[in-house]
Computed example of a mutant assay.
Amino acid sequence: MSGIFCAYQRDNFAGTRINMVNCNERYYVSTWGRGGSWINDQTRNRPGREAKMYNPSGQLVYTTPPPYSSDAHGDWNPVRFVVPCR
């Protein structure tokens, strides 16, 4: 979806999708386990539009590249929640 960060439960942008639209909000993906994918299509050319992924301890485990970026073969296993932008 254009203009937002989308997380998908399965590889290749399949399965349950969470549309992450609110900056500084935590979106939980902790039940998804292995596999997954995401698309960062948040408003381009604005700072802070890299999504940050955190483990159950609240430690940052991954920061996405700025928009437009995606990963068709990610791994939600180490991720508890995502903050799409600041």
Rank of each mutant, 00 (worst) to 15 (best):
V82W: 02
N19K: 06
N55Y: 04
M20S: 01
V79S: 06
F5P: 03
A14R: 15
Q59P: 00
Y68G: 03
G58Q: 07
A7Y: 06
R44C: 09
R17D: 01
A51S: 13
T31Y: 02
E50W: 03
I4G: 08
D75F: 00
R86G: 14
T43Q: 14
N12S: 14
T63M: 09
T31S: 15
L60Q: 11
P84N: 13
M20L: 12
N19L: 03
C85N: 11
V83G: 07
P47L: 10
R26A: 14
Y68T: 06
T43R: 12
V83C: 07
Y8E: 01
S70Y: 13
S69H: 04
S70F: 12
R49E: 15
V21L: 04
N22A: 15
W32S: 06
P65N: 14
G74K: 02
G33E: 01
V29G: 08
V29W: 02
A72H: 08
C23G: 15
R46S: 10
N45C: 01
T63P: 02
A72I: 04
R80L: 09
R17K: 15
D75M: 07
I18M: 09
I4N: 12
V83S: 03
V82Q: 08
F81P: 06
G33A: 06
V61T: 11
I4E: 11
N24Q: 13
V29S: 05
W38I: 03
G36I: 01
A51F: 10
T43C: 04
R49T: 15
R34N: 00
N24F: 07
Y8A: 04
T31F: 02
G3S: 13
N24D: 14
C85K: 08
I18N: 01
R44Y: 09
R49N: 15
Y27S: 08
V21A: 14
K52L: 11
Y68C: 01
N77S: 14
S30Y: 08
G58N: 09
R26P: 04
Y27C: 07
T63H: 01
P47H: 04
I4S: 09
G36R: 00
D75I: 08
N77H: 12
Y54H: 08
P78A: 10
W32N: 05
V83D: 08
V79M: 03
Y28P: 05
G48C: 10
L60I: 09
M53L: 15
M1C: 11
Y68V: 08
K52D: 06
R10Q: 05
W38T: 05
N24S: 13
E50I: 04
D75P: 06
Y62A: 03
Q42T: 08
A72V: 01
V82E: 09
W32C: 06
M1G: 13
Y54G: 09
Y62I: 03
V82A: 10
W38E: 02
N40C: 05
T64F: 04
G48N: 12
R17V: 14
R26C: 00
P67R: 03
N19Q: 09
Y8W: 05
R44N: 05
Y8Q: 03
Y54Q: 07
F5I: 09
A51G: 10
P56W: 03
E25D: 10
Q59Y: 11
G3P: 10
G74Y: 13
G74V: 01
R34W: 00
G3M: 10
C6G: 02
P84F: 05
C23W: 06
Y8P: 06
R86P: 15
N45H: 10
M1D: 13
Y27T: 07
T63Y: 03
N55A: 05
S30D: 15
